Simulated scan of single mutants.
Amino acid sequence: MKSSTTDRTPLRAAVIGTGLLAQHLYSYSSQDDVEIVAVGSSNPQKLGIAAAEHFGVDGPEITIQETATVLDRPDIDVVLHAGPQDTVWDAFEQCAARGLDVLTTAGGYHRSEQLDRFAQEEHVVRLAERNGARLLGTGIFPGFTADVLPIALARLMPGPVNLTIRIISDIGPWSEKVLRKEIGVGGPLREAELDLFDYVKASARIIVDSISSARVQWTYRSDLLTSTELVSIGPVVVPPGNVAGFSLQAVAKLDESVVDVTWESSLGGAEAGGTIVASSLDHGFNITTRIAGTPAYPATAARLLNSVRPLRTLPPGLRQAFEVPLATVWADNSGHH
């Protein structure tokens, strides 16, 4: 069983996952506090491939290995989980069993309200506490617009704050598989049961976790949007009246304030980007921030990396986002910050 108390610098980290977020973590491999020394995957087709070749960016000369092999390495100090959200608690359990600290940016790291899942998660938390491992979720795609910046604004303003976040994404560049299978673009209108909704819920929850410990009342809305005319969304042709996008909302009502996160696809000429409105309830002023596009992965990856060292000062177990500083500075491969 590993010890999560080493104070060597830099700490040696393993990235679990091979998607865009993992690419950013790999490319930031020359941090002062964290050095990426391994990349793990459960996809047999990616094993043995050079990480730099797979990600298409400069980085350490390492090959992608099977996840269990990476976690069993004696030189790993901390695990950076960038895999799918349905693998979060499996990753937590694997790391907890080995006494390894693990940070994730995938949704699903909050405790479930379902009794059977809650019992399984409770087992993992107790395992982490016994073995000296810390489990932490630091953020979620859409990232910068949907958690890092709203949290920063809320912490800058005195007293309770209302936060209203609206993100509009251009889904045209998304793959045909995602458009058709995950959203239903081009198909008939149906009840909206989107996996994407988990991202919105997780973003809202990470904001609430970071700014308040008050009791929360949640409401959710999930809608599919239809086109009024024949349109093309990426490679998909959408007849009039068929699904052309989505609108998802999560609202948290706290004791004195409200956090409202909405994520929509652009439709009818709406410009992609983000708007954040932070309203100080005690002092009667607002801060409105507009962002062109939806920058996400760089800030999300940066917050995870900058949470590694502070996490190791906390007791073992499932930790909360408000327990680590909101740090979003990172260095690119040229050393610029």
Rank of each mutant, 00 (worst) to 15 (best):
Q65Y: 10
T228S: 14
I183T: 05
E121S: 03
V236F: 07
Y28K: 11
T294G: 15
V57N: 06
S175Q: 09
L127H: 04
A22I: 00
I36M: 01
V88F: 12
L305S: 06
Q85H: 14
D147I: 05
G132N: 11
V259S: 08
I16E: 07
I167C: 11
P239K: 04
P316W: 05
D255S: 10
P188M: 05
A302H: 08
L163W: 02
V243F: 01
V231W: 02
N162F: 05
T300R: 13
D209I: 14
V178A: 13
G172C: 09
Q31S: 12
G56V: 13
R73Y: 06
H283L: 11
W218I: 04
L224K: 06
P158V: 15
A272P: 14
S169Q: 12
E121N: 04
R166Y: 06
L115Y: 11
A133S: 13
V125E: 08
L225M: 10
S41T: 15
C95R: 08
G40I: 11
Y109D: 15
P325Y: 07
P160N: 07
P150S: 15
T289V: 14
Q85K: 08
F92K: 12
R155W: 02
D77V: 01
A96I: 07
D101Q: 02
A119D: 13
R155A: 07
G107I: 03
T289W: 02
T288R: 10
I16C: 12
E121V: 00
A97P: 00
P316Y: 05
Y220M: 02
Q45W: 03
S265Y: 02
L196Y: 11
V236A: 01
Y220K: 04
V161C: 03
R111A: 02
G234P: 06
P316E: 07
P74M: 02
A14E: 05
A331N: 10
S4W: 02
A192Q: 14
Q23P: 00
R205M: 03
R190Q: 07
P10S: 08
D90Q: 05
F246T: 09
R312F: 00
A91L: 03
D72N: 12
W330T: 15
A96Q: 10
P160V: 04
A154V: 11
V78Q: 04
V231C: 00
D195N: 13
V329A: 08
A302I: 09
L163A: 11
D101F: 00
I64W: 09
R126W: 02
F285Q: 03
F55D: 03
T262F: 00
V261P: 04
G17N: 12
L11F: 04
L135T: 03
V237R: 11
C95D: 11
A96Y: 11
A244D: 01
D58T: 14
L153V: 10
T289D: 00
A299P: 08
D33N: 10
S265C: 07
A272S: 14
T288G: 01
L149Q: 00
D58Y: 06
T104D: 12
D170V: 01
R221E: 14
Y199V: 13
G56W: 13
H81T: 06
P240H: 09
T6V: 08
A327N: 08
L136A: 07
V258W: 01
L196D: 06
V148G: 09
P60I: 12
F197D: 13
Q217R: 13
A292Q: 08
D86H: 11
A250G: 04
S266Q: 13
P235I: 08
Y26P: 08
E264F: 02
G273S: 06
N162Y: 04
Q249K: 07
G48R: 08
T219V: 05
